[in-house]
Each structure stands twice: as structure tokens, then as C-alpha cells.
């Protein structure tokens, strides 16, 4: 991680009341103008409820969030207004194949986010493990899994994160590994903290770990977020709630797994991931019907 990760200890960021009103994200000029008066949580929650109700009436329910999800304000100018063009079955399409990764692409230390600096990070040490499957239920073997997260205080080692919570000189929050032959991945890290953002007044993200995954086909590409069970912030968060199907939302929440906890060392969370999308190596969906 040494070449990409900024050294959190080297940050010159000042803390204090002024920082809490600093721009938490790099908003464009139009976004800043729109954000002068932040909506209330009550308003955002009402919009979430309305969006869920409308989605519930749709007979074709996608597991993925709609790209136009008004309660998540940044989506307003960043979603296509036209429907995507449905791609005809083309066995030659490059997207049915995808990039491959190998042992030169990761180092052993990458999967342990608590050992990337000279000291131990603060926070609750956890093991996060699970399997990556394709939509036929087969393991995705030898593929790249990448994660990034805030530290235990809810702060990212990122220059634009100005949340006045402490950086941790012993934690960057970036991990990588390759899945094994059973599609299994495993990381050691610390539990990330919740953090505020400026989508609306008193907006807080539930604790989460960002995941990036590859399948055997580019169509199976997935970037998502893993949440921790029982977080009271779930109903208030327009990002988690952008997934309108409640059963699909549940699939973003890890399970506490006592068998995965290591005695006197770390608590275990299990999270299996299923990649959507066709692949050259998958049976033709038409034949499954």
C-alpha cells in the first residue's frame, strides 16, 4: 500500500468546530448551490418511504438500486434519464470475458489491514470472510477482492474527508486478496466507525466496508458495501435504502459468526457475495427457463 496510501499521520488537517462544516465531499458548483439549505432527515425518510412504496408496486423487482434515487441527492445529476440499451445475446461480446489477476497482483500483507504500519491500529479487531459465487451458485475462484473503509473513529485516510474525528497513523483502510478455489476470501481489519456526511441535516452513514469484486466476465463487475448486523442507522441511510427490495437490502448485511471469531484475538463476520450478470462460462440463461 505504500505507494498509494497517504500517510494519515502526515495530514495537516486542523480539527475543531470549523471543520465540521467543511465540505465532506468534492461537490460540484451546482451541487453546492443546491445544498445551501440541507433537507431534514424527516423529509429524506419520507422520500425513502415513497420510493420504496412505488418500487414495491413494480412487478419486475431488481436487486440493484435504481440509479435515479432522489433521497440520495448526489444521484440527481448523475443518473441517465434514458433507459440503458438492452444488449442482444452476442457470444462474441468482450464483456462476457474479463480481466484476470494473479499472485503478482497482491502481497500477503494486503489481506491484513492491521499490519500495514509499524504499530497496531485502534479499534475492535475483526475477521471478515465469505465466498464469492456467480449467479449459478458456482465459486468465483482466483479473482480479485478489494476493500476500503474508514478507521474505527469513522474517518477515511483521504484528503477530502474532513470529518473531525481522529486519523489513525496505524491504519490506512485498504485491503486486497484473491479468492481461493472455493471462492473464499478473508480479511483481518478493525470495525469501521459510522461517519457524518452532508446529504441532509444530521446524515450519518452506518458502519460499512466498501467492496470491489470481479467475476469471470466484466458484466459481473460489482462494487458494493457490507454492513454490520443490527446497526440502528439503517433506516436513516439513503445509500443502503437505495436498494428498494428489503430482502436484497438484507443481503448487504454480514452475519456475526462466533465460529469465525478467534479466541482472545478477533470477532468474526461472515458475508457471502453473489455476482450478477451473464458470463461466457455460465450456462445460457435461456436454457434455464
Amino acid at each position: 500500500m505504500t505507494t498509494t496510501a497517504p500517510d494519515p499521520a502526515a495530514s495537516t488537517t486542523t480539527h475543531g468546530p470549523a471543520a465540521s462544516t467543511a465540505t465532506h465531499e468534492q461537490a460540484t458548483a451546482h451541487e453546492q448551490a443546491a445544498a445551501t439549505a440541507l433537507p431534514t432527515q424527516r423529509r429524506i425518510s419520507a422520500e425513502i418511504a415513497a420510493a420504496h412504496e412505488a418500487a414495491g408496486r413494480d412487478p419486475v423487482r431488481s436487486p440493484h438500486p435504481p440509479r435515479d434515487f432522489a433521497p440520495y441527492r448526489s444521484s440527481a445529476l448523475r443518473h441517465p434519464r434514458l433507459p440503458p440499451v438492452r444488449v442482444p445475446a452476442d457470444p462474441e461480446a468482450a464483456e462476457l470475458y474479463g480481466p484476470v489477476f494473479g499472485r503478482t497482483d497482491v502481497t500477503d500483507l494486503d489481506a491484513d489491514l492491521t499490519r500495514q504500519h509499524t504499530g497496531e491500529p485502534l479499534g475492535e479487531r475483526i475477521t471478515v470472510a465469505g465466498r464469492v459465487l456467480d449467479r449459478a451458485g458456482r465459486p468465483v475462484a482466483g479473482q480479485l477482492v478489494e476493500i476500503w473503509q474508514a478507521n474505527a473513529s469513522g474517518r477515511y485516510a483521504h484528503q477530502r474527508d474532513q470529518h473531525p474525528a481522529p486519523l489513525d497513523p496505524h491504519f490506512t483502510g485498504v485491503g486486497r486478496c484473491l479468492t481461493d478455489r472455493q471462492g473464499a476470501y478473508r480479511f483481518t481489519t478493525v470495525k469501521p466507525g459510522a461517519y457524518p456526511w452532508r446529504n441532509h441535516e444530521n446524515a450519518w452513514r452506518p458502519a460499512h466496508i466498501h467492496f470491489s469484486l470481479f467475476g469471470t466476465a466484466f458484466t459481473q463487475r460489482l462494487v458494493t458495501q457490507m454492513y454490520f448486523p443490527g446497526d440502528p442507522l439503517f433506516p436513516y441511510d439513503p445509500i443502503l435504502q437505495s436498494v428498494t427490495d428489503p430482502a436484497a437490502r438484507e443481503r448487504l448485511v454480514a452475519t456475526y459468526d462466533h465460529g469465525l471469531s478467534t479466541p482472545e484475538w478477533s470477532l468474526g463476520y461472515r458475508w457471502d457475495i453473489v455476482l450478477d450478470g451473464p458470463a461466457a462460462t455460465l450456462p445460457d440463461p435461456e436454457e434455464d427457463r
Binding site: 440493484h64 449467479r135 478489494e146 485498504v174 450478477d276
Partner: peptide
């Protein structure tokens, strides 16, 4: 067959993790 894991936004802070 298992059900797909939903997508979530990449967010604003991937910059120290994904680009290389």
C-alpha cells in the same frame, strides 16, 4: 440459485484504494 448481491455507490473515498 442464489440471489445477487445488490450494487452500492463507490462513494467519494475510493481514491486511495482503487486507482493504482
Amino acid at each position: 440459485m442464489p440471489l445477487p448481491t445488490p450494487s452500492q455507490t463507490v462513494g467519494p473515498f475510493y481514491g486511495y484504494a482503487l486507482p493504482f
